[in-house]
Structures are given as structure tokens and as C-alpha cells.
């Protein structure tokens, strides 16, 4: 084992140690009277910044069509195999759309790879962190739950454009 030598010798007061303990105690004492940072969660809710990776959602344009073309890249890149996509054909110019798009929130690890790989900016991480379910089936989010209007995701989309 290598012994690391201190770069500076301790001063006399530090060596006595008792004085340093006293300083430490005063520090905690001071903190006891400082304002508290706790948020009273169910009553007060944390609003995350744009960089926050909450549950992934699908971007829905204002005309009601989802951006997703069901290419399956998110599904492929997902390290936890949380995403299942079934494509189908549509008359729209994008040709493909997801007939089924399911994210298993029990598998999701919120890594954001899906968002990163998406060629259409169609799946993004939202600010939603309140994920509660009481059985495995409820934990699988389908298109109904995933589609989110583009207006609500402005923050994140701007963030992506800036930093991705």
C-alpha cells in the first residue's frame, strides 16, 4: 500500500483536533438554522429543467399526426429492450407510421438513447417523472399514453436543437 503524504503539515490548532471538532460542530449547528430545501412533494412539485430525462414520449404534430415513422431504431438501440414498434403503411408522404408503439416503463432506464438515435425527432424525453402502476400490464405504455402535443415539448425540442 502506498502511503500518501500530506502536502502541507497541519498547524498546531489542527493538531489539537479538539478545536477542529468544535469548528465542525459549529458548522452543523449553523446549518440547523438555515432555510430548509425540502420540497413537500405531493403538494409542491419539482418542475425539471429542459435537460431532464423523464419518461420518453412521442411527439404529435398539431395536425394530430405523430412524427414517428416506425423505423424501429429506438427499439434497436434501447439497451433495456423496452420499446416495441410495429410499422404499417399510411397514405401520408412519410409512408410508414407506427401502428403500435409500446414502451415498457418497467424496462425503461431513461438513458435517452431512443431520443438520440431518432432520425425524426419523434421520440423525446419529457419532464414527467411520476410513473406509478400497480401491475405489469399497466406499465406498458401504448400510443395513447405516449403521444404528446408538440407544444408541450417545446422546451425539450429547443434544448435538443441546441445541444444534440
Amino acid at each position: 500500500m502506498t502511503v500518501k503524504k500530506r502536502t502541507e503539515d497541519l498547524t498546531f490548532f489542527q493538531k489539537i483536533y479538539v478545536a477542529e471538532i468544535g469548528r465542525g460542530l459549529m458548522l452543523t449547528l449553523k446549518n440547523m438554522f438555515r432555510p430548509k430545501v425540502t420540497m413537500q412533494y405531493p403538494e409542491v412539485k419539482f418542475i425539471p429543467p429542459a435537460s431532464y430525462r423523464g419518461r420518453p414520449v412521442l411527439v404529435q404534430e398539431n395536425n394530430g399526426v405523430e412524427r414517428c415513422v416506425a423505423c424501429g431504431l429506438c427499439s434497436r438501440v434501447c439497451p433495456a429492450l423496452a420499446i416495441e414498434v410495429q410499422a404499417s403503411e399510411t397514405e401520408l408522404e412519410k409512408e410508414r407510421y407506427p401502428e403500435k408503439f409500446e414502451i415498457n416503463m418497467l424496462r425503461c432506464i431513461f438513458c435517452g438513447f431512443c431520443e438520440e438515435v431518432c432520425p425524426e425527432e419523434a421520440i423525446v424525453m419529457s419532464k414527467d417523472y411520476e410513473l406509478v402502476f400497480t401491475n405489469r400490464e399497466d406499465a406498458i405504455y401504448d400510443k395513447d399514453k405516449l403521444l404528446t402535443s408538440v407544444d408541450k415539448l417545446k422546451d425539450r425540442l429547443e434544448f435538443l436543437r441546441k445541444f444534440k
Binding site: T28, M32, R34, K36, V37, T38, Q40
Partner: peptide
């Protein structure tokens, strides 16, 4: 309580 106060919690 005291641990919370020392850590700026409630």
C-alpha cells in the same frame, strides 16, 4: 429531526 436540520431538510 436533528439530522434533517443539519442537512437543511425538514
Amino acid at each position: 429531526k436533528i439530522s434533517a436540520w443539519a442537512q437543511n431538510r425538514i
